[in-house]
Design a protein around this nucleic acid. Sequence first.
DNA 1: TTGCTCCTCACGTCACGTGAGGTGGC
DNA 2: TTGCTCCTCACGTCACGTGAGGTGGC
Lengths: 272, 272
Amino acid sequence: MFKIGDFSRLTKVSVKALRYYDELELLRPIKVDEWTGYRYYSASQLPRLNKIITLKDLGFTLNQIVNMVDSDLSVEVLTSMLSSRKKELEETIKLEHEKLRKIEYLLSSLSKEEDITMLNHDVIIKKVEPLPIASIRDIIPSYSQQQHLWMEVAEYLQKENIKILPPCLVIYYDPGFKESQVDIEVAEHVNQTAAGNGRVTFRTLEAVEDMACIVHKGSYETIYKSYGIIMKWIEDNGYKVTGPNRELYLEGEWSVSTPEEYITEIQIPVQK
Amino acid sequence: MFKIGDFSRLTKVSVKALRYYDELELLRPIKVDEWTGYRYYSASQLPRLNKIITLKDLGFTLNQIVNMVDSDLSVEVLTSMLSSRKKELEETIKLEHEKLRKIEYLLSSLSKEEDITMLNHDVIIKKVEPLPIASIRDIIPSYSQQQHLWMEVAEYLQKENIKILPPCLVIYYDPGFKESQVDIEVAEHVNQTAAGNGRVTFRTLEAVEDMACIVHKGSYETIYKSYGIIMKWIEDNGYKVTGPNRELYLEGEWSVSTPEEYITEIQIPVQK
DNA sequence: TTGCTCCTCACGTCACGTGAGGTGGC
DNA sequence: TTGCTCCTCACGTCACGTGAGGTGGC
């Protein structure tokens, strides 16, 4: 029989941990003195404790371990628990490798660039939810002539008394960047639907699991720079573009006074 | 300007997280309504939030991030932070691989063995601290004739009035297992020192970083089985033995009544 | 008016670590 | 007797999630 301190030294498990395992009923002392509350452990508990430590080192939680050491589980159950832990581990290793790669990418761009602006025009991958919209798709002579499409949508929605929610956006369908005859869809985010009028239609924009996003600040005249950055990032990080890109207008002429204050988010669906 | 819900949807960052970042002064709303307490965010805060998310995804803590986004840090500082994070990541990846390997080992032994006893005679690696001992090293005709060495040590310690602490142990110095002429050191754990008498000497047993350990339950006659298991484990897991092995007697004739209750820990120093 | 959104507590998570304040054993 | 070991609270960790209970805005 060992007092908790001796048992702790013997096993290299902290006194506090032993008391915690006692509390969880994971490893009760063989005897607790009624008057002093002193815990006494036996060497015969070592195999159990070793099992606990082994399982803990493999990444199981103490609650899982309670079940694993208490019930005598069959080989099948144990196998499946180990297998699923194995899958988890493989998953986290993959994710950690991803992080490592991103850090290396950041480090390499840091050594090449002059300042830290890199982190200021940062590309991120996120999941985008489905979005109910009212929109018009059309082919227009140039990017700068989309104004009338917006007005058409706005007029219809006002007539139907449907509220517009942020953000508004456009979707570009052309397979490359085009100067003229642009295939474009302008869309307002709404939370009701209506019949439409042949021009304006209602639908739900599909969710995108991996959306590469970058925030562009300032006038639309310089937006090509942000496109340059995000396209390079997509290439450097081994992604492929899988669909039409979106532009979300977060701050524009309707909300701020100068083009320098415009804020636009470019979204490009991608895949590894 | 967006209310917190809109901003949350836009950024895919939970409302609770945004409130938490506010509290940490990591990302304050541009405006808080004095009467309602409503938080209002601006799209111009997106780059900052993206920076936060990027850094968080790389595994930095929010406290680290506070410093990284608030101060404009130099390229050098940022580089060193990223590098040290990179080292951490490499380390954790190594550890996760270790776990994976151990799980695969367990799975393979599970599929070969009949039951789950495997987990009951588990080998673990732990760090062993230095241990002050009083000991006699001698060459004896056979394992079973160590009794007089123990008595010699005990007599001396009693004479000097030095207390014995658990555990007692022996160290085997022979490079292989020998039937006769065994080079052995029997040792008691003590917390004081004395001159010794030519036979009994005092020293501190060195710490061992990686000690492979297994607990043997029962009579010494079956201890060869535990040695078999631990040696196979050491081989299978790519370790090499780097020094003399120890046997710690945790429960023995002095504390329990039958050999079935004896408990012995075998310790073998190893290295990858 | 109703439902939706926002607010502020307050508690829970996970596996203990770190004192505070007090007592038992040699 | 003194110092060492043990005890039980109680709080902290980290980044929020999950209600509870209440209010503002359309």
